[in-house]
Computed example of a mutant assay.
Amino acid sequence: MPADEYPDPTTSLLELLNLSDADSAHTDEEIFVGARRSQPNQRVFGGQVLGQALIAAMRTVDERPIHSMHGYFLRPGDPDQPITFGVQRLRDGRSFSARRTHAYQNGVPILSLIASFQVDDVGLEHFEPMPQGMPDPESLPSTAELLGKFDHPVARAWAFERPFDIRHITPALYVQSKGKPTATNAVWMKTTAPMPADQSLHRAALAFASDYTLLEPILRRHGMSWVAPGMSVASLDHAMWWHRPVRVDEWLLYVQQSPSASGARGLAQGRIYSQDGLLVASVAQEGMIRVPRDGKSKVIGALQKQVMAQKLRRMASQK
């Protein structure tokens, strides 16, 4: 299907974030139902569940923007089944509100998160500066330009159905890993079309997009791509802090790094900047990354060599 025949994916994003009330449900939770969307890998994208769970929580809070969330992915989601969101009001104080949201399928939770909201306030101000020397996003190829030529359902979904235009500054890892192995990654991103002005929508959409490339610095550090044979990757948890108002329909710089990987898990951290250099959000996620047995032996062998080299350097320095 030619690219211009695909529906606008930002419209799909807005439909996913437009939850309906479930008036017939009677529990200690306030219940909402999210739209579903078929996906070629038969698993609900984690960012979708995050964004929808946050919208559900936001529906129960008046005039207090979200400033942080901490969530766990408990089970893979089925894209062919509806997702029900149950929100529990944990606290409403003078300045802060807290909500717990569970996302359910078939009567069991697939995601559990707690979100915190705060009235607008003033105080101390500082932030880590935006990295310098980044290329202009318009000068970089889009995902559609990189993957649109491949006749594969996953490639075409990533190229034409994602609601965000993602442009890699470090070489993309879709089909191969290029360059020196390093535990860093950087992309520009924005929605494919303008969004309504509602700041809650923009913050939920940013959570949606923050799950796209966050595990890539772990893969890049070990010279792996998303199509490595036999590799299994899944997000385990997700934490996010919104520092300042944000617009996701304007270019955002997402810089990521991984401080550690072990035990078939990797930790990734990210900072998201507006194009004029303001730090608007920070993200952290641990992911499960299982590699094929032969790949494991290579990784373990490389680690053993590093440990032995460190021991030899220490011994030499003590002489």
Rank of each mutant, 00 (worst) to 15 (best):
G51A: 15
P79G: 07
A57I: 04
M58S: 15
H67N: 11
R59K: 15
L54N: 03
R75H: 09
R75P: 00
Q52R: 04
Y72K: 08
S68W: 10
L74R: 08
D78A: 04
D80G: 12
H67E: 05
H70F: 09
T60A: 05
G77N: 06
D78L: 00
I55N: 02
L50Y: 13
A56T: 10
L54D: 01
E63N: 12
Y72N: 12
G77F: 05
L74G: 02
D78V: 04
H67P: 00
I55V: 15
A56G: 04
G77W: 05
I66A: 13
A53M: 06
M69K: 06
D78R: 06
I66K: 02
L54G: 03
D80Y: 09
R75T: 08
P76S: 11
L50D: 07
E63Q: 13
R75D: 02
H67D: 04
P76N: 09
Q52C: 05
V49P: 00
L54H: 09
F73H: 02
R59A: 09
Y72D: 07
R75C: 05
G51D: 09
G71F: 08
V61L: 00
V61R: 00
D78G: 01
G71H: 08
P76H: 11
S68D: 09
H67S: 03
D62F: 08
G71V: 07
P76Y: 11
L50P: 01
A57R: 05
P65D: 11
A56Y: 04
M58C: 14
L74S: 01
